[in-house]
Amino acid sequence: MSASQSAVRSRAEAVQVSRTLDWMILFTLFTVVLGGYHIHYMLTGGDWDFWTDWKDRRLWVTVAPIVSITFPAAVQACLWFRYRLPFGAVVCVLALMLGEWINRYLNFWGWTYFPVNFCFPSNLVPGAILLDVVLMLSSSFVLTAVVGGMAWGLVFYPGNWPIIAPLHVPVEYNGMMFTLADLQGYHYVRTGTPEYIRMVEKGTLRTFGKDVAPVSAFFSAFVCIIIYFLWHYFGRWFAKTDFIDGEGM
């Protein structure tokens, strides 16, 4: 081919092709990341995300942010540091939450009849906005890991508070004190529940543990910082354009 030849007829056509490709790239990135992020999240934090009776003040607050900061950190490493696009975390979270909401409505409710107010997904949007804003303002992945990663962990529970608070009010049932979320779980028995008919917040947590959620969030934020670093480097590696010799394969 000749280097002097042009692939397009005019500048207008070049612009049009470029815009079309932008949409096709975004669609592919969105759907592939959705698939990968969703399978990762549902199998590392899924049960806490599926059911309100798992959304407690300790393990949900700890586990969900730690396992969910992974893909946003990796995608930021490509989109910001290569293209200066400041929406890596938000696009990941929007993709994940779209996939989750479609599933909870059409399958959890539509196929197996769990009410949506029992199986709605956790809200990750506030943390994603903070993560992207910190990266955009600082242009530093170290600062994003420390400040943004910590914010991701800390903001998770407050970000879900308005949604989960009505289900954490106490009720008395057969002489036991439950939360409404516990009561939902009690009535909607699942195959995984026999060994998990449990009150997470029992014993010392209910007498001694009024600070459980903030402590859990703080611990989660600490781990999120480390996970962000790790997955930033995963993201850099996955963004490589290397070719290998096909000989012997």
């Binding site: 592939v32 959705l34 698939g35 399978i39 899924g46 996939g99 599933n103 196929w111």
Partner: peptide, 27 residues
Amino acid sequence: LCMYGWAVYWGASYFTEQDGTWHQTIV
């Protein structure tokens, strides 16, 4: 590639999480 992304969505997201609710409902 768009077709691949679309197929990955259905496989890895839609039908995989769906599997979770089916197997937590039936034995």
